[in-house]
């Protein structure tokens, strides 16, 4: 384990923690954004028609790779498995679960002795969470896919472009408000640009940092 003092999230330089404390009262705010860094992001590739591959993954993270494009399985509170391509998935874990999942996947896929790959990309991206009653409008300013509830809902994901930045986009349900919460996973180098764009696009609705 790396000493935590050494770790610096892609958006750490924006002082978001201090802003979140100052903007704690989010009532009446149109858009709420936050950085959720250091979730485990493990890229796996393999042949989903090979039962050994599926079994090895199930054994490692208790989830089967979804075969329906643009869907996610699992719970945000623990581990999720996101479809990226017909032979590619992303395991998303809580920060504390990343190392265990990575080791389990590497071990079980090695035992299965089949052509597959497991690559840790935890550091390559950060997660920007966008919620609040105007979240969908804000993202739609920069994203051409249809985010209407009839077309995009909890459990769905997409790799697409938000304001010129490639992202993995996922929607989670907010059980209290029934309003969508979006997770944007940009590559870390793009995170500042995307964050600044989001804040700018949200300004007319009122925006606070969580």
């Amino acid at each position: 384990m790396i000493d935590t003092y050494r770790l610096r999230s892609p958006l750490a330089h924006l002082g978001l923690d201090a802003r979140a404390r100052a903007e704690a009262d989010i009532s009446g705010t149109g858009v709420i954004i936050s950085e959720r860094p250091q979730a485990g992001l493990i890229n796996i590739r393999g042949d989903v028609s090979d039962a050994r591959f599926v079994t090895a993954i199930e054994k490692s993270i208790k989830l089967s790779p979804p075969t329906v494009p643009n869907t996610v399985v699992g719970k945000p509170s623990t581990t999720r498995l996101m479809w990226l391509a017909p032979d590619e998935w992303m395991v998303i874990t809580r920060p504390s679960g990343a190392e265990r999942a990575l080791k389990a996947l590497q071990k079980n896929l090695k035992i299965a002795d089949l052509h597959s790959s497991v690559t840790d990309t935890t550091e390559a991206r950060t997660c920007i969470r966008v919620s609040g009653p105007r979240a969908r409008e804000v993202i739609s300013k920069g994203c051409s896919i249809d985010l209407h509830p009839s077309a995009f809902g909890p459990g769905q994901c997409a790799q697409t472009v938000v304001s010129r930045v490639g992202v993995m986009l996922a929607q989670t349900a907010n059980s209290k408000t029934h309003q969508p919460t979006y997770e944007l996973y940009p590559l870390r180098s793009f995170a500042t640009y995307l964050w600044n764009w989001l804040e700018d696009a949200s300004a007319e609705y009122g925006v606070k940092v969580e």
């Binding site: 643009n70 017909p86 051409s144 896919i145 790799q159 697409t160 472009v161």
Partner: peptide, 10 residues
């Protein structure tokens, strides 16, 4: 064929 309809720019 996998992701469905998307804009040309993707």
């Amino acid at each position: 064929p996998w992701c469905g309809e998307r804009e040309e720019s993707e």
